[in-house]
C-alpha cells in the first residue's frame, strides 16, 4: 500500500494513504480527545474536539482530524495554543449545554475546566448531539429508527413524530454507544423498554458448543 509521509508535532512519520490525521496521530501514540468519533462508524466531524492545526505559519488553520486525510509533507500540530484554546471553548460550550454529563465533565476537567462561564439553559440536558446513536442505528444496525430532527434551536435525536417507531428492533445499540448515557433504556421483568416501545426479552437457547461451531464454520 502506498504510504504518505507527514509531520506530526515535528515528528516525521509514514502512514498508509487514506489514513485520517487522527489515525496517523494515534499511530504515533499522540492522544487527541474525541467525542463523536468511533472507529467503526463514518466520521462526520460534529463535535470539533479533535481539531488540529495544519499548514505553515502564518497560514495555518484548524481542521477536524477525524475526517481530514493525510497529505504528503503536511505539518500537523495536535496541541498548539490555537488548538487547545478551541478545545477548551468547545468543552466549555458543551458543559454549558449538558452540565451533568459525566464524560463532558471529565473531558473538561482534563483541560482544567471545572465550570462553564456560559449560561446553562437546561441543567438536566445530557445529549450533546454527537450523533453516534443515529449513525450506529443507521450504519451498524441498519434500521434507521432514530435521526436528528429540526435545526439549531430545537435540534434533537428522536424517532419520527416523537412516537414509538416500527423500525426500532429494540437492540439497544444506540443506548450502548451513547457517551453521555442519555437514551432511556430500561430492562426489568423480562422486558426492555426503549424509545417508547416494549420488547419481550427471550433467553438465548443456542448452546455454547453450537456457538463455537458456528464461529469456526464462518472462519472456514
Amino acid at each position: 500500500m502506498e504510504e504518505v509521509g507527514l509531520l506530526i508535532n515535528g515528528i516525521y512519520l509514514k502512514v498508509p494513504q487514506g489514513y485520517t490525521l487522527l489515525q496517523a496521530a494515534q499511530q504515533l501514540g499522540v492522544d487527541i480527545p474525541t467525542l463523536c468519533y468511533h472507529p467503526e462508524l463514518p466520521s462526520e466531524g460534529n463535535c470539533r474536539l479533535c481539531v488540529v492545526e495544519i499548514g505553515e505559519y502564518p497560514r495555518t488553520r484548524l481542521v477536524n482530524s477525524c475526517t481530514y486525510p493525510v497529505e504528503p509533507g503536511l505539518n500537523v500540530q495536535t496541541h498548539s495554543e490555537k488548538v487547545l484554546q478551541a478545545r477548551r471553548i468547545v468543552l466549555e460550550l458543551l458543559l454549558a449545554r449538558a452540565p451533568k454529563a459525566k464524560l463532558i465533565q471529565d473531558l473538561a476537567a482534563e483541560m482544567g475546566i471545572h465550570e462553564s462561564r456560559f449560561k446553562s439553559e437546561d441543567p438536566y440536558e445530557l445529549c450533546v448531539l454527537c450523533g453516534l446513536c443515529v449513525r450506529t442505528c443507521r450504519e451498524i444496525v441498519g434500521v434507521s429508527a432514530i435521526s436528528m430532527a429540526n435545526r439549531t434551536p430545537g435540534k434533537l435525536v428522536t424517532t419520527p413524530f416523537l412516537e414509538p417507531s416500527d423500525a426500532c428492533i429494540g437492540c439497544g445499540s444506540c443506548a450502548f454507544v451513547c457517551p453521555t448515557e442519555v437514551i432511556p433504556y430500561i430492562e426489568k421483568d423480562g422486558k426492555r423498554i426503549i424509545w417508547g416501545r416494549e420488547f419481550e426479552l427471550v433467553r438465548c437457547n443456542v448452546k455454547l458448543e453450537q456457538k463455537l461451531k458456528s464461529i469456526s464454520t464462518v472462519k472456514l
Binding site: R138, A145, M148, A149, P160
Partner: peptide, 21 residues
C-alpha cells in the same frame, strides 16, 4: 409522509428529518 417514505424506499426518519429541517 409514511407513504412517501415507502414509495421512495427511504427510512421514515429521513423524511421526518427533512420535514423538520
Amino acid at each position: 409522509l409514511k407513504v412517501v417514505a415507502q414509495r421512495l424506499n427511504v427510512p421514515l426518519t429521513k423524511v421526518y428529518s427533512v420535514a423538520t429541517f
